[in-house]
Design a protein around this nucleic acid. Sequence first.
DNA 1: CGTACAATTGAAGGACATCAAAAGCGGTGG
DNA 2: CCACCGCTTTTGATGTCCTTCAATTGTACG
Lengths: 246, 246
Amino acid sequence: MAVQKILDRICALESRTRDLASGAELYRQGEKCGSYFLITKGWIALSALLHDGQCQILDFVTPGALLGFPLLSSMVRSHSARCITPARVVCYSEPQLTSAIVRDAELAVLLCRQAALDEWRAHDHLVNVCLRSARERIAHLLLELCTRIRGRIPSAGDTIRIPLTQAHIGQALGLTGVHVSRTLRVLREQGIVRFIKRDLQILDSSALARAAGMVGTASGLPPLSHRLPPSIGAWRFRWAEALPAA
Amino acid sequence: MAVQKILDRICALESRTRDLASGAELYRQGEKCGSYFLITKGWIALSALLHDGQCQILDFVTPGALLGFPLLSSMVRSHSARCITPARVVCYSEPQLTSAIVRDAELAVLLCRQAALDEWRAHDHLVNVCLRSARERIAHLLLELCTRIRGRIPSAGDTIRIPLTQAHIGQALGLTGVHVSRTLRVLREQGIVRFIKRDLQILDSSALARAAGMVGTASGLPPLSHRLPPSIGAWRFRWAEALPAA
DNA sequence: CGTACAATTGAAGGACATCAAAAGCGGTGG
DNA sequence: CCACCGCTTTTGATGTCCTTCAATTGTACG
């Protein structure tokens, strides 16, 4: 798989491993960019703060992701990265990456694609939030996270660890934690999923897909596999596995 | 300016100019990727369709933007690109770009940053939609578009052509056209802006910034210049100007 | 055992959607 | 020149999804 090459090349660079506690900030909105990170363990939330204190989670980052690639080395970070669980990251400095790209053009192509992939996720998130009801948003998010973690669409009976609070889910989806709780209750009462203490039990996977608004049979539109390419999360997951034990 | 280099290098590639009518589709969600485009004239909307026919505008694209860079050459487009106004684009094939990157590593760095920039815009859009009221969303969008077009934050008295219908604005912001109309009426009655026949008149620019939720004086948070880097839109605009008349 | 955080539930209110109709406007053809 | 058409905007009435505020109940941890 082509993406494996990113890992190989990046691992060849000089680096420094860091362990972070749950709640720690990897970087903060407004800081100067200057380094970037390969996540090897744990979950991290990317979030933007507003002047009035409101917080929007932009993306959940799982092991294997490359984080913090700057727009311009002189620019400040547009969002914060905070650990949801204890995490381990490998740090690189910005000049390292730039010179690595200049030396190795194929790496650059891969990094561009990585960036485009992240943009794709942001767009999907946007569609989810703007066009769907709370029930659909939550079902969609849960399905996406499962797929990213497992590397495949979940089937009935699976139990999957998702280390998020209901407040996290709300902050990602533009909902209050209260409403997430109510909506999860409905999904539970309908025998679709149970989300107890950060363990997600899939009771009826096809009902979950339906609740997420993923009717596979629609007219000439991209199938489920397009909206949730299993490859994306899977790559990220496997990069992490392929990493040296550090 | 570093970004000018992208233009120089891309213009050196073999290309083909295309003119598109208003309403024409540059590419469509679900099609195979295989070419990419430099916009030199007109406005284009990137949008995603759902199975039930709902449509979400992901971004408005103005002259100077590089469009359609694929995740993987084998992948299908995740969204459609439709002309809002008559437009002119320069087309390149995917292998051209890839080989150009391999030959010219500095171009690759610039393209990565371009991709990161697009992601930044998507994140900003997400924050706008999730955290703000209809009034704030609309004010924010208008302010952003003005800044992109003019290359600077607009001042009172400016009249700026924004070739969008109120329905477009609604589809971008997760609102109905009806509600956009109502909200614009309030902004008009308050003497902040007037949006008549796609001409935006700025009556009170600081009130507009306030309505957009951009209070510059907030505690340790990034200033306005961070949330709306004038450079971004400006670059794009200038690339287009610098293009050969084609 | 007390404290802090997460989840749950209820009641009340608001922001926005939906449905429907009318009016303004430009373009086209008779 | 006027009639007609389609598109956009506007406005009203009604409804609903979600928020807000508040209180209660777990559950983990020192």
